[in-house]
């Protein structure tokens, strides 16, 4: 079963930027309720988009370098990276259907 994988500052380049498949990074933190609420949706999406998009999670508290680099100032933020560049930026808790519409449009 495809599950979101945890990434940190050190692995970010290898896992996200150099990935051959597009990667979603979920910027989150333990104190963020909407992050807790979006997590099960991302679990489902990881399964549904298995092989097409890799889903990852980055704890902004533990990995402030990467969070600062992408100017994350609100969580949850989802960034979709393709060929090392963020091409979709989704801020806040969003319904699953809306996330899928955004991802599908970006992959098309």
């Amino acid at each position: 079963m495809a599950q979101p994988i945890d990434v940190d500052d050190n692995q970010f380049e290898q896992t996200v930027l150099k990935s051959a498949t597009p990667v979603v990074v979920d910027f989150w933190a333990t104190w963020c309720r909407p992050c807790t609420m979006i997590a099960p949706i991302l679990d489902e999406l990881a399964e549904e988009y298995s092989g097409r998009i890799t889903f990852t999670r980055l704890d902004v508290d533990q990995n402030q370098k990467t969070a600062a680099q992408y100017q994350i100032m609100s969580i949850p933020t989802l960034l979709l990276f393709k060929d090392g560049k963020p091409i979709v930026n989704i801020v806040g808790l969003r319904p699953k259907e809306e996330l899928k519409r955004n991802l599908d449009a970006a992959l098309a």
């Binding site: 933190a29 104190w31 963020c32 309720r33 909407p34 992050c35 902004v60 508290d61 100017q71 994350i72 100032m73 609100s74 969580i75 949850p76 933020t77 930026n89 801020v91 806040g92």
Partner: peptide, 17 residues
């Protein structure tokens, strides 16, 4: 500027400021 300084959740985002 939503997500770039405009926030609707202080609990979530106070940390960034």
């Amino acid at each position: 500027f939503t997500g770039k300084g405009v926030s609707y959740c202080a609990t979530c985002d106070a940390f960034f400021f």
